[in-house]
Amino acid sequence: MNASWQPFPVAFFFMDYGKPEKATENYFSATFLETAGMRTIRHATGAESMMRACNLLMERTRDLCQEAIAVVINEANRFTSFEHDHLVTLDNLLERRKKRAFFILIYQNDAEWGGQQAIDHRPPTQVTGRFYSMAHQFTGLLWGNANAIDFQGCDVTMAFNEYDEGVIFPDDETGVPCTAYFARNAYMNGYRLTSQVGLFREVVEDLRVKNHLPAIAPFPMQSFERFVYFLLVRIAGEDPNFRQFNREQALKALLWAGYIELELSKHAVVPDDTHR
């Protein structure tokens, strides 16, 4: 892993959190251990399991010759008061060993049935002070200037450029950028996905307006990746005479990607049942 971009000597530990029936210390610590491929001890006490999780994180910093550790927990929106208490326990164990830990809790604000759950629904002050001192709101890919290829001010253009120049396929010494692989002849003649950002934007805006949505909105990564997949693999990759995409193909890819269903679900009206 290339760590040259890091301004501080920090080791990263990534884990996904489940949704247990009982959020015990054993379940919480087992998630850390199993993520690292370690065996859990069935009859260990909660305190013993938490200490093993602490030792794991200590070893991670030592193995990577780092001074601090960043614990990145995905699906932290599933946390209850019990998980926050376990996090406090783990933080205390690390602190007593003079190890600095940073906890990065990733919340999916649209992950719950029956409405949104937001990071603003925070736990008590002691927990908030430790783990919620800073928040960053992620968006989809933002559009920039509608009339120019803007690699700095347009997230969508930058994302397309990754397929044109950055992401290599296949992932070996024979690999080339994705656009070059699936649209080889067109690429050799100068074609790039970024050259058609204007067309893609028009198709997206037209589709949104037809479905009574605001014309401009961030492009969700979930549907963007599927959109590009369909364009490159299912259209360009299957046409040896491909030169560039037309409006019909762009719309077909957008619909196949489930773009409009995802956007409509975010704007769905929740029935008011307070009087039932």
Rank of each mutant, 00 (worst) to 15 (best):
R201L: 08
E238A: 07
R201P: 05
R192D: 02
G258Y: 12
D206M: 15
A183C: 07
F219Q: 00
R243Q: 09
A180V: 12
G198I: 11
K252P: 01
L213C: 14
E165V: 10
F242N: 02
G175F: 09
F219W: 07
V203T: 00
D206A: 14
G166M: 03
G258N: 14
A253N: 08
A236P: 03
I260H: 03
Y259L: 13
A236N: 05
E225T: 15
I260G: 02
V233W: 06
Y229G: 05
E263Q: 14
R243D: 04
Y181G: 07
W256H: 14
L255H: 07
H267P: 04
E202I: 07
Q249F: 01
L251A: 07
E238M: 12
Y163R: 01
T157A: 10
A217E: 13
F245Q: 03
F169G: 13
I235E: 03
D206S: 14
M188A: 14
L264V: 04
P220K: 08
R201M: 13
V209Q: 15
L231H: 01
H267F: 13
N161D: 00
A217I: 07
T157G: 00
N211V: 06
L199A: 09
N185W: 08
Q152L: 14
Q249G: 02
I168W: 09
V197L: 01
T274I: 09
F169C: 10
H275L: 14
V228Q: 02
W256I: 15
E162W: 00
L213T: 10
N161H: 01
K266V: 11
T157E: 01
N246V: 02
P218R: 05
T179W: 02
Q196N: 10
Q196A: 05
Y163A: 00
D239L: 03
Y187L: 12
V233Y: 11
N246L: 06
I216Q: 14
V209S: 12
N241G: 10
S223W: 06
I216Y: 11
L264W: 02
P177M: 12
I168F: 10
D272F: 06
E162I: 00
R243A: 06
T157F: 01
E263R: 13
E165L: 05
E165P: 04
L207K: 12
R201K: 15
D164Y: 02
Y191P: 03
R184G: 08
D239G: 05
D206P: 06
L255I: 14
P240V: 04
L199Y: 04
Q222L: 11
Y163C: 00
G166F: 03
A217Y: 09
Y187K: 11
Q196W: 05
R208K: 11
Y163H: 03
N211T: 09
A253D: 02
F224M: 02
H275Y: 09
R226D: 06
R226H: 07
L264F: 08
V197C: 01
F230M: 11
R201S: 09
R243T: 10
F230Y: 15
T274S: 12
V233A: 09
A180M: 13
V176K: 15
D272L: 08
C178M: 15
Y181A: 14
F224R: 01
L207I: 09
L231A: 02
A236V: 06
N185C: 11
N211S: 12
D164H: 02
G175P: 14
G258S: 10
I260Q: 06
A217K: 12
D164C: 05
V197N: 00
R208G: 08
R184S: 15
A180P: 03
E225G: 08
Q244E: 10
E165M: 07
V270C: 10
